[in-house]
Design a binder for these strands. Structure first.
Lengths: 117, 117
DNA sequence: CAGGATCCAAGATGATACTG
DNA sequence: CAGTATCATCTTGGATCCTG
């Protein structure tokens, strides 16, 4: 692979990070933060369909992983922004979403065929 | 965003594909197939820790999405390989894994600090 | 080898309500 | 606003057994 890490091995520390990052909510939240720092409620609005609970939990783990930085500005004003590591990963994730957009026509066609079969 | 699709909207068809693709098993399976086509048992070995059941399910949905092509060579010999769409997405996913490898040192450090706090 | 069927534990998730 | 606590539920994922 690239060197010391191997995401295919369940024992490699990189595996758990890959698992964390390639989960539905973490992935979407990271991409959302890529655009700009978000406040809690703001992030909830950006990422459609996420509940307060999941957003809270997701942000907590991302902060624990050092991918997101939480800053308490007081006055009930908290901001979440990407760390350098988080930015690096979020950019890659955005690439995945972009790739999905690229091939959506083919995917929709494949699904249509599957559905009609 | 890029155009007609918006993964942040729960209603956009791209959202479900992004969800599918950014799940632990699908992501790892796609990356595994990026290297070369795999037979069933072969894929199970490559992706450490996956059970037959999950591999079967995962491959089924990936085939349904048109990202993976299943070819039955008879004689109990089946091969799974990426379609053009799948290859495009898998490449992007590999980028995510690579990005994770890149920042693993920082992540491990962050976790260590969090654990000792 | 390929993979479906069944059973079941554990965790993910959402809605709601509540706190500072 | 920024969360946390609780509850009910749905899904995930593994183990095991079975078929062709």
């Amino acid at each position: 692979m690239t060197g010391a890490f191997d995401a295919f091995s369940p024992l490699c520390p990189s595996r758990s990070v890959v698992d964390d990052v390639t989960d539905r909510w973490p992935a979407l939240v990271l991409i959302a933060l890529l655009e700009k720092p978000h406040r809690f409620a703001e992030a909830a609005r950006t990422v459609g369909g996420i509940s307060d609970r999941m957003l809270s939990r997701t942000l907590t783990t991302l902060v624990a992983d050092g991918l997101v930085v939480r800053t308490d500005h007081g006055e009930q004003h908290v901001e979440y922004e990407l760390s350098a590591s988080g930015h690096h990963i979020a950019t890659a994730l955005k690439g995945v979403v972009t790739a999905v957009y690229d091939v959506m026509p083919e995917i929709l066609q494949a699904k249509a065929i599957a559905a009609s079969a």
